[in-house]
């Protein structure tokens, strides 16, 4: 769905040729993404075979504990860290991003995929005016100065920066945290990317501002028809925002499905544990934390990485790494998922 453009921009809407398969191609298709980093003791795999699809206009939340590989995945999709070796497949609108050369990849960043980072205090360069930083997202892709300025002002205005024209000359320290995060969002979307990756965009903000920023992202999805990957560890935030949720544990996707079903009937024991450990006002009793601590990338257990902490683990979990399979509406990587009565374990 595509609403009115927030700024005048020729968004090319692909027109299917006659006879072409009309089932919509997903905007982002990630399959078997594996990311490893060099270390003193050899390469360490942070992400091992991660799959994800995002459609246009879809809000997907990527959820996991610290160290599960969420942020590394985000950076790998943009190929931002040259020390990381990335393999697998990342298709954006059919283009294999991992096959592009550096120059071609640069043209994708910002223009096709926007990235928003966690901390607005450090994401903005303290010695440059916010105007120049928002304009930079356009200038690096060859947009002229006047045009870039016009669009930067329009975008800041659209994102609720009061007196945007004058504030272009202001510096980050003159803004509050919430306003800075709006500027960061402006930097990420001013070039109208097809996909926005927001890496914990609200973690550093207070609750009221969190909501404002999320609802801005939400309205942009509708207006621009962007796909969004929201990376977070805040399950409460996800419930109100996402269409679909992908849960990550130890560098792998353990469960991915529509938000409602996933919350109502989690299939993977880890998802279920994660949900049980969220404090809720409508439920009495003590919280049920997941036993043990997350697997370290350097010493991940064989088989299913979650088995040492899993109450449902059996012998096969220690040997055989489960691949995702479809159960109901979700893709679940588990040998012994939680199954509803009458569903059967295929």
């Amino acid at each position: 769905m595509k609403g009115p453009d927030i700024v005048s921009l020729n968004v090319e809407v692909p027109v299917p040729a006659p006879g072409e398969d009309l089932t919509p191609r997903p905007l982002l298709e990630v399959s078997g993404l594996t990311v490893s980093y060099p270390s003193a003791t050899g390469p360490v795999e942070i992400v091992s075979g991660f799959d994800l699809t995002v459609a246009r206009g879809e809000r997907v939340a990527l959820v996991g504990e610290s160290g599960s590989g969420k942020s590394v995945t985000a950076r790998a999709l943009l190929r931002l860290d040259h020390r990381a070796s990335v393999s697998g497949q990342v298709r954006l609108d059919g283009t294999d991003l991992l096959a592009l050369d550096d120059r071609e990849m640069r043209a994708q960043r910002g223009r096709r995929i926007g990235l928003m980072l966690q901390d607005p205090m450090t994401t903005l360069n303290p010695v440059r005016s916010i105007g120049s930083q928002v304009m930079e997202s356009l200038r690096v892709h060859g947009v002229g100065k006047t045009e870039a300025r016009k669009r930067a002002v329009e975008t800041l205005d659209r994102l609720g920066i009061p007196d945007a024209e004058r504030r272009m000359r202001a510096y980050p320290h003159e803004f509050s945290g919430g306003m800075r995060q709006r500027v960061c969002l402006a930097m990420a979307i001013v070039a109208h990317p097809d996909l926005l990756i927001a890496d914990e965009p609200t973690t550093a903000l207070d609750v009221r501002v969190q909501e404002q920023v999320l609802s801005l992202i939400d309205s942009l999805v509708t207006e621009l028809g962007m796909g969004v990957v929201l990376i977070t560890h805040d399950l409460g935030l996800v419930a109100g925002f996402a269409d679909r949720v992908a849960v990550m544990y130890a560098g792998r996707g353990v469960e991915c499905g529509p938000v409602g079903e996933l919350y109502r009937s989690p299939r993977h024991p880890y998802t279920s544990g994660l949900l049980a450990s969220v404090p809720r006002v409508d439920r009495d009793g003590a919280l049920a934390p997941i036993a043990g601590s997350p697997a370290q990338p350097t010493s991940r257990p064989g088989g299913c990485a979650f088995h040492p902490r899993c109450a449902r683990a059996e012998a096969d979990c220690t040997e055989d790494r489960p691949d995702p399979r479809r159960i109901g509406t979700a893709d679940v990587a588990c040998h012994h998922p939680l199954v509803l009565a009458g569903e059967g374990n295929r």
Partner: peptide
């Protein structure tokens, strides 16, 4: 090492 450097790369800067 600052985040704004990552942000600049993510914009597509050379």
């Amino acid at each position: 090492e600052a985040d704004h450097v990552t942000a600049a790369r993510a914009k597509g800067a050379r």
